[in-house]
Amino acid sequence: MGYRQKHAIPDLGVGVGFRVPHFTHVLGERPPMDWFEIISENFMVRGGRPIANLGRLLETYPVVPHGVSLSIGGTNPLDRDYLAKLKKLVEWLEPPWCSDHLCWGGTGSVNIHDLLPLPQNRKVVEHVADRVKKVQDHLGIPFALENVSSYMSYRESDMPEWELVAEVAERADCGILFDVNNVFVSAHNHGFDPNLYIDAIPVDRVVQIHLAGHTDKGRYILDTHSDFVRDEVWALYARAIRRAGAVSTLIEWDDEIPEWDVLSAEAAKARELRRATLAEAPGAEARP
């Protein structure tokens, strides 16, 4: 039995991030949208407007929390205060899963607030898997790690990134939030074939897919979430869906955020591509 089946991970359809410029429209008009993802940390607060807004969102839509500050690959002890706040959020939302990134974000007393890549080797696999188990035990719901975009390679790496992702997920028995745009960005920056990555991911563990736009900085590509999804990334998405089947998908747009109709149209594009791809690959939808 695959991970998704074992944990009864639902297919929520295609959603978008719940972001400030759309709060009034979404909470006032309740436009059609399959589901919303929130940045966990923005709602791990004492109360006030963030919590009030989230409460109103929950009245209408499924909501899944996605963190950016767990620093699962860091060498500091896991932050108990952070985990307590995340658990409180999770207990309120009762989402089908929650997620963060396969990365590190700080060391010592410094928090860099970035999703820094990890060296890709067995020691790191063990280090991260051990910490993921603790997080899962603490949260008590399925937990997924997202592959990050990267702009640097470590001397200590001795395996491809997709092997790191797969090994951590297998050893920790956790889910994968598969960011297809991040695959494209890292493949471009490091010169590997993104199709190899797509084909190597254990798809039964993929609980969610991210799509986003990026920015070409000339000598490298930066994951900015500030634009439409590029054609090359749509093609990778179709390839991933063909393998994984009907997996909840999310459009990330966090900078230069467009009008709701533009964002909604991008989600509709993903929805249609997903439908068409699954129709052409009838076996895919049935996969766990």
Partner: peptide, 16 residues
Amino acid sequence: LVGNARLSAVEMLDVY
């Protein structure tokens, strides 16, 4: 770090 054809090791670090 290990640089590549696009960026040297220190240029990679400088992105961050």
